[in-house]
Simulated scan of single mutants.
Amino acid sequence: MRMHNADETCGIAQAAVVVGDWWNVLILREVARGHVRFDELAGELGLSRKVLTERLGRLVARGVLRRSLYQRRPVRYEYLLTDSGLGLLPLLVAMQDWADRWVLGDGTVTATAPDGGAEHARVHALTGTRLPSDLRLPGADGKERDVVDPDAAATVLFTYPATGIPWEDGIGGSGIEGAAGCTLENRLFRDAWPSFHESGVAVHGVSTQLPYEQAAFAQAESVPYPLLSDADLRLAAALRLPTFRGAGQLRLKRLILVIDADRTIRHVRFPVGDIPDAVQQAQHLATA
């Protein structure tokens, strides 16, 4: 890319050199989703092998991806995100959030979604797909956990915007439709947790709040299940989850996934309007 001299000190221009290519962005999107092998990437993107080889080589050379050998005869590599590549995930999610609002939506900031819209279709298309095997998030104790409990018959994973924010006053003071109810949802899952536990089903709550914020809430509310932090937006990027910007930060919209032990998403509930009914349904589906 030809650049003006003034661009040498511009971070936006320098980032555009790395990710400004259409295919580079989509390759990073697919790697974040767990499609890390050449044939998987070619199939998902519909890209010729020659062009894909060129783009992967550039991303490796830029230090965004690294190659990891997984087969010797013939030689085959997986393409994995480096720390530099992981640092681009918030950019990808921010691009998605912008497009969901301004290109695919009407510009309204909302924590919910209409039936039949792009976000609704994208989330419900997750049914039958598998979560990446290396998807781990920090818990309230700061230690990383698998988003799927490997010892459980199933995992109910619910995402929520945040607790302790103005919209949690019960009045919806933020004016963001669908944002209120995070504390209520956690309390309902807390009260139903003995039944989940007895059935061998794990419950994981996920928000973009920091672990120390989640730890304070978990202690105050006696939450018995793990609260995981997606502050770095790894889960949001991996599943292309819908977000909205509230209180100056990207927040996950409320949804519920029921995930089998083999990491396959069995059921999806989105959007979540009636929270008590959604928790009850999750309990029924996960323990059936």
Rank of each mutant, 00 (worst) to 15 (best):
G85I: 09
A282W: 01
R76H: 02
Y212D: 15
C10N: 15
P114C: 00
L126I: 01
P194E: 04
V103T: 09
R49H: 15
W98E: 12
T9N: 09
R187D: 14
A113I: 10
L47N: 01
S68I: 15
E198Q: 08
T163I: 11
V75M: 15
E40C: 12
T112F: 11
P114M: 03
E119K: 07
A179E: 01
I275Y: 04
G248H: 00
A121R: 13
W98I: 10
Y160A: 03
V36I: 13
H124P: 06
Q71N: 08
L104A: 10
A113G: 06
D141Q: 06
P211Q: 02
N186G: 14
A282I: 02
V60E: 09
R49E: 15
R49V: 09
A238W: 04
S68E: 12
H120G: 07
A99N: 11
A192R: 01
G85Y: 11
L257S: 05
P276G: 06
S133V: 13
P114R: 04
V223E: 05
A99E: 13
C10I: 13
R37I: 11
L28A: 01
L59P: 05
A13M: 03
P114I: 05
W193Q: 02
V75F: 12
R187I: 10
R66L: 12
S174A: 10
G57M: 14
P224M: 01
T163A: 09
H124L: 08
A237W: 03
